[in-house]
Design a protein around this nucleic acid. Structure first.
Lengths: 306, 306
DNA sequence: CGGCTGCGATACCGGATCGGTATCGTCAGC
DNA sequence: GCTGACGATACCGATCCGGTATCGCAGCCG
């Protein structure tokens, strides 16, 4: 890339623009708060660098040549764009401009995450937010490779270079087929589900939501009767509506309204399911801090380990 | 207009861009053929002027901050635009870029002028050509006020600060109603028209085409029987087609094809009508020179007074 | 017609700033 | 813990910038 810029500097543009607009070296010198000789010298140097005459010196001032007319317009443009560039850079430094890559996975995409993203978008409209559907392993890999800024997942193993926060504790609900006998109850307990056929998810990655659900039974020395393992909550709900059995979903998944499906809350002290946010420990960018602030404002907060 | 540019110069952008792209001060120094310390100093100064940190210095090189990512993009952009600005300025100096205001009037707009403009547009596609319909007085005024670069008209009085060239000598033709007795002749003379009712134009400005036509008769001691004076050639042709009489038109006007109108040429040695080009005597711009060259190439040329 | 005035260009000077060399502090890797 | 590579710093000479003083020139006015 061989540039024709040579040694032209913004100073040349500033000085030339002032002279061209004032149609006078002396008047421009006053406006710029410098004396007149430096203006003469800088404009001469600019003309020499361009190999062109930009101004016609005349007894009562200066006139623009055709090249001068064009260069004046270009110089004004460049100066204005340089100002904008500085503005944009300073906005970026304040986290108001840039790109935020967010990893998402699981049922939180149906409620909690959309609320967060919407709030962030309206608070920081010039930040481009990109969502990536990645499971936990994929999020961790992408975070390390800088392809992700934050990730949301149900829980995380400890990683030395990463930090996680629990940003939301959601209650659990049972999804039942419309005619099921438990539909008559307004609240359920884990014990109510003992012996009921269960559809569980996700099959991978492990450990994850599935293990938390099964743990609820084991902790109470109850037996979970798993009839089907599926990939995601949507498939699980579909199977429930087909009469395969019951399944457990977080509050976020209540937005998944399918015909023939009824949700009943689990008693709140029975179990809570965490939503976690993971990020690089050394990432102290203003953009990430701004995002975390929005998350804490939008979601009922709980302390993390970071 | 208070700029936030401060004392930022293109040098800062060039150096920062090189360092940011190479992710290394030393490597950038090699590419730029300078030593490493000046790079450190210029980047430090740039960061100080912006009040921001653009680079994170690390043991194995440098990483960009969020602000650095944005500023790198902006700086590249500015450097590329500066190059383009220089290109455009140099094109302007060569007459390849700019704006050409052309004054036109009379029947030449139907043939000679369109041919010139089309040739110029294809040779200088980045020059904006603007046509202005102005009579001779209007053209002279606009030329003096720099609103016009050149003007075309049928003939000009001498003006001290203006220069004119005859750029085309067109033959004359007679426009006849379809059933007229002279239609049977393939060529006509002025004498053939003696006693015929004539429609003449333009009423103003004077002197102009009308006076040249009437002069043809007076020179031969013939009588021109003027039945109607009108503003322009189009109106004259319309009256001819209505049977008012005959009228004289230049070659250019032969493109005006109306039903019921027949054109017959005047013998070539009977009369020629000039097309003149007028311009400022002191205008030696490359753009005007380029236009004159095109005119001379497109139109059969004759020497002018300039 | 000659002095005056206002313009840009030039000469020259002191200080700021640039780029160069040499060197330091620091962290990673063997 | 040594070594090597990186960026930062110290210092120096040369350049470049901006300032003052002055020149050359053209239009203006009495």
């Amino acid at each position: 890339m061989t540039s024709r810029l040579g040694a032209i500097e913004f100073r040349h543009l500033r000085y030339f623009t002032a002279v061209a607009e004032a149609r006078s070296f002396r008047a421009a010198a006053q406006q710029l708060h410098v004396s007149q000789p430096p203006l003469t010298r800088q404009v001469q140097q600019l003309e020499e660098l361009l190999g062109l005459v930009l101004l016609e010196r005349q007894p009562r001032g200066v006139e623009l040549t055709a090249a001068g007319v064009v260069f004046l317009e270009e110089a004004r443009n460049l100066l204005a764009l340089a100002d904008l560039a500085i503005d944009r850079t300073q906005m970026a430094a304040q986290g108001q401009l840039g790109r935020l890559d967010v990893g998402v996975y699981g049922s939180a995409v149906f409620d909690a995450i959309p609320r967060v993203i919407q709030a962030f978008r309206s608070a920081y409209p010039k930040v481009e937010v990109v969502l990536h559907n990645l499971d936990r392993a994929g999020q961790i890999k992408a975070l390390r490779e800088r392809r992700l800024t934050v990730g949301f997942n149900r829980f995380f193993v400890e990683e030395p270079d990463l930090v996680w926060d629990v940003v939301l504790a959601e209650a659990l609900n049972v999804a039942l087929p419309a005619g099921h006998r438990l539909v008559s109850r307004s609240q359920l307990t884990i014990a109510d589900l003992s012996g009921e056929p269960l559809v569980v998810y996700p099959r991978t990655p492990r450990p994850s939501f599935i293990d938390q659900v099964l743990g609820l039974f084991h902790r109470r020395h109850l037996t979970a009767q798993v009839v089907q393992e599926v990939d995601d909550v949507v498939t699980a709900i579909a199977l429930v509506s087909s009469g395969f059995g019951l399944t457990m979903v977080s509050d976020s998944a209540l937005n998944l309204r399918l015909p023939g499906i009824v949700y009943r809350p689990l008693e709140r002290n029975e179990a809570l399911i965490d939503l976690c946010m993971i990020r690089r420990a050394e990432d102290d960018s203003a953009l990430l801090r701004a995002f975390i602030d929005v998350v804490r404002k939008v979601l009922p907060q709980r302390p993390g380990n970071g």
